[in-house]
């Protein structure tokens, strides 16, 4: 497989990092620790899947972090609106659909604006980032909303285990990975995404429905953000209106480290997954190795620079 072969440098980098951290922290490769990393990677990976699609068509979505907070607060607000001791699945369904609906609405707006107006996606999503953040801060006087312990189904999204082995967030992330990978690599939608990212003009002259593709891509990114928002909220046991700051940048970093070309037209879901894992390992490893958090940032920045430098050079 050509695509897997091109992943080898990334996989090698991942292995090198694992070994390095194993030297500093002996229990780094223990199953518990690895599962812990996987759990922490999940939210960022889900965001990065959507971001990958957006970047491949030559766009960008900065609203991700703020939208994640807005979906979390909206969902939990509906969930906790009526005080009750028991959980109602009808209410849970309503809360989740509303949350995802809000996300889809934002995504559709991004897509339509990007396709139909000349506004650059960077600015469109910079604006909606502010709007989403503001909307999230409207809830509960900007204070966190605690999720009552009785909402076991919702909380399970962030803290449950499948057969006591696979954490729920990891499971959801893997399912979404499979879905988005199939979407990008095996459907005509995916072909159109690549064509459009490679050359919008050529795609237009080939009869590809540019508006539809662009709207769908931004909607998928936002809905994935919504799902990540619910997981994140459940993990925190409360919806925090000010959460998710900078998440969009982490998602971009994962996509780019994974080989997604910032000028569009190139990128794979597998690459993005590995990119997210590398960033996760880095975060966790530096922490466990006792590196001061100031240096953690510096090292992370250098790793991103290096990864992209080698990727660009390899392509030349």
């Amino acid at each position: 497989m050509k695509s897997v072969k091109s992943m080898l440098p990334l996989i090698a980098a991942m292995v090198v990092l694992l070994i390095l951290f194993r030297l500093r922290a002996p229990n780094f490769l223990s199953p518990e620790n690895l599962i812990d990393i996987a759990q922490q990677v999940s939210v960022n990976a889900i965001l990065a899947f959507g971001m990958t699609l957006v970047i491949i068509i030559g766009g960008i979505d900065l609203s991700v972090g703020a939208l994640l907070a807005l979906v979390g607060t909206t969902t939990v607000f509906i969930l906790t609106e009526q005080q009750s001791e028991t959980q109602s699945f009808a209410r849970l369904a309503l809360a989740m659909t509303t949350g995802l609906g809000v996300a889809a609405l934002f995504g559709a707006f991004h897509g339509v604006c990007a396709a139909k107006t000349k506004m650059p996606p960077f600015i469109i999503t910079l604006a909606t980032m502010e709007i989403a953040r503001g909307a999230a801060l409207r809830f509960n006087e900007s204070r966190p909303i605690t999720i009552p312990g009785s909402e076991t189904a919702f909380l399970a999204m962030g803290n449950g285990w499948l057969f006591g082995v696979v954490p729920m967030p990891v499971l959801i992330m893997l399912i979404l990975f499979a879905l988005t990978a199939i979407l990008l690599h095996r459907t005509r939608f995916g072909q159109h995404v690549y064509a459009m990212g490679g050359s919008r003009e050529a795609a237009r002259f080939t009869g590809i429905p540019l508006v539809r593709i662009e709207v769908l891509v931004y909607m998928i990114c936002s809905v994935l953000t919504g799902i990540a928002g619910m997981i994140h909220t459940a993990q925190l046991y409360s919806a925090v209106p000010s959460s998710g700051v900078g998440f969009e940048l982490n998602a971009i970093a994962a996509a780019v480290v994974g080989g997604t070309s910032f000028t569009g037209g190139r990128g794979t879901m597998l690459g993005t997954l590995i990119g997210a894992i590398i960033i996760g390992i880095l975060d966790k490893g530096l922490n466990q190795a006792g590196v001061h958090f100031s240096f953690q940032h510096i090292i992370k920045g250098l790793v991103i620079l290096m990864a992209v430098y080698f990727d660009v050079r390899r392509r030349k």
Binding site: Q191, H192, Y194, A195, E201, A202, R204, T206, G207, G265
Partner: peptide, 30 residues
């Protein structure tokens, strides 16, 4: 303008030939 309007230069020959006819060779995700 062959290079700008005709072809997706980043991609392979096969990609460029097959892209208008995606419907013929992809059904759903197959």
């Amino acid at each position: 303008d062959r290079k700008r309007e005709g072809l997706v230069m980043l991609q392979s020959v096969a990609f460029n030939v097959a892209i208008p006819w995606v419907d013929d060779w992809i059904r759903w995700a197959m």
